[in-house]
Amino acid sequence: MEQELLNKFATELIRVGGEFSLASSKIEILKIVNKILSQKGCNTAVLSSHPFFDSLKEMGKGESGINIFTIEQILSLAGESDYTNLLREKLSQTDAGINYAEYLIAETGSAVVVNTQSEPSYLSLLPEISIIVSKSNRVVKDMSEALNRLRTENLFDSSGCITFITGPSRTADIEKVLITGVHGPKKLYVIVINF
């Protein structure tokens, strides 16, 4: 069942222009992220401070020469000055943002991102490349199951803003021609770790 849902998720994600990869361990997540970043010629990336990434904080360092900041680091860098402004500035200049998704929705190929202090909304929005990481046991059937689970796990009411992300930012406002990356990311990668 879990495998079936995951396959469906991957199919739908690819259909909306996202890219899917499977990682067998946290270390492998590192490798995939690094591969994407170097392939895309990225110099900088910002990583969510979600607890999921705790053991991966040092990721990327030394391996590919890519500078990875965490949200926590930006926060401490800001000190007494305007954090929001600094965050905007950093994320506008950074090539990629790395988020954690609480759930993945099989029916639509969507990632459910709960925007919190450790991963504010801009992270999946301002950089041109968005990388979202989640676990294989977090794939749910459809939007209604995702919303129900968010509630039962007390994530819905406690969060100020939740976003369902389905593929990269897109528009078809000019003669219905599909263009990606209109205001948000041009590319969306989802990495799922087997759990």
Partner: peptide
């Protein structure tokens, strides 16, 4: 589309 790129659920201000 089955789903649009973004669905935002805004619950409260910061």
């Amino acid at each position: 589309q089955k789903a649009t790129s973004y669905v935002s659920f805004i619950n409260s201000p910061a």
